[in-house]
Amino acid sequence: MSTTTEIEVVDLSLTPLRELNQRLHDLAGADGPRSWRITNPSGAHNIACGLDADIDVVVEGHAGYYCAGMNKQARVRITGTAGQGVAENMMSGRVTVDGNASQAAGATAHGGLLHVRGDASSRCGISLKGAAIVVEGSIGHMSAFMAQTGTIVVCGDAGDALGDSMYEAHIYVRGAVAGLGADCIEKELRDVHRAELGGLLAEAGVAGVDVADFKRYGSARNLYTFKIDNTY
């Protein structure tokens, strides 16, 4: 495959979004520019969704819904804020949001790393299926709802009902938790968790944060295992 240092610039005020996404999709297993810069996103939905190529994409500005959804391999960075469902169902690769992310950031994501430098809103990591999410700010209510596996690291605070009905995801929060959801409890932070947490902070490039300041939250395993008391 060709390796070019040229940056391909696409201005979304001039180029239709479908055309951009098709060009990005066409890179799956094919030659083409490896570095992309998307200008004038103006909150458009579905920017750089469904990528499956080892490429770098920088969205310069604010993205709408589902930016970098279903991402595989690609490294997507949004320099502004991201709307609902950023990196939704990501499989691998890395998505970085320099600003804040709206609701359902990283929803159902299977793999890869979602790094939010600002805050993430409600339902961050809902139904998480294996990806890692690192939020430097705070997260909103109902985050990690039914999260199955994967890791959520929050350097700030967490909103109400954290980890409600969750399965085996790992949640680490440095600040205050407004409230824990059903069957979510604080758990001991052991060496294996400190290593995981430190590794993710390093991978995201978050400096000046002490692993010892975090608390770990997880499932009490009273809800999802079969118990006759849980039936209606």
Binding site: S42, G43, A44, H45, G61, H62, G64, Y65, G80, G83
Partner: peptide
């Protein structure tokens, strides 16, 4: 949605 705000001067 943000796209409605994006049309305002200085929104970026």
């Amino acid at each position: 949605e943000f796209r409605a705000i994006a049309v305002l001067p200085g929104a970026e």
